[in-house]
């Protein structure tokens, strides 16, 4: 895998190479170079299978990480390509022309993270959360537990911490 990284580095600006297992590596690429890199990997390096496309929210550094995971059926190796997006303006080029199913992934990311993929067919249609008005739910600053407690009527919890309860019961004065 290291060899592939070296080879790719000649043409693309890559960083943060991590080899998790002999057959699995991750690498970060510049945003502008992603589509050329994926096309190159698919057409020349036989990474023909788009395994998944997903996003990770790094709220602390105000970034979204997109991970494009590709698989090579001949060498049975995987490479994960990371792209960092500005969280305030998350826009990424679409890859639906490379893989048909990518438009579904992109539609989901648009709905769940608010990442836009201009040109991806139906990217703005709601997929899972039809009628949802709030912020994109998979963003880390959306607190689902808080939302649920505020929105729905739950049974009131009636629990105690042993340590605090024992203090109240056994030695309230100390």
């Amino acid at each position: 895998m290291k060899q592939l990284d070296t080879e790719l580095s000649k043409q693309f600006t890559l960083s943060d190479y991590v080899e998790q297992r002999p057959e699995l590596a991750f690498v970060t690429v510049e945003k502008q170079q992603l589509v050329p890199l994926l096309t190159y990997l698919r057409d020349t390096k036989k990474y023909t299978h788009l395994v998944t496309l997903t996003a990770v929210d790094w709220l602390e550094v105000n970034q979204f990480q997109l991970t494009y995971l590709l698989h090579n059926y001949e060498t049975h190796t995987d490479i994960g390509i990371r792209v960092k997006l500005d969280r305030d303006n998350p826009v990424m080029e679409t890859i639906h022309h490379l893989w048909e199913q990518a438009r579904v992934y992109q539609r989901e990311l648009h709905e769940m993270f608010g990442i836009d993929f201009p040109g991806s067919p139906g990217v703005e249609e709601p997929m899972i959360l039809e009628g949802w008005q709030g912020p994109p739910v998979m963003r880390r600053d959306f607190d689902t537990a808080k939302y649920s407690l505020e929105t729905y009527d739950h049974r009131k919890r009636d629990t105690r911490e042993p340590e605090i309860y024992m203090k109240e019961k056994l030695y309230p004065e100390d």
Partner: peptide
């Protein structure tokens, strides 16, 4: 009544409630 069951429950199923009978080294929950 150490409450480990309530701690590990992923779905807040378990509430620790007081009981009348306790013993030494027992939280009474």
């Amino acid at each position: 009544g150490c409450g480990s069951c309530a701690e590990i429950c992923q779905n807040i199923t378990i509430d620790m409630v007081p009981v009348s009978e306790t013993k030494d080294g027992d939280s009474g929950l």
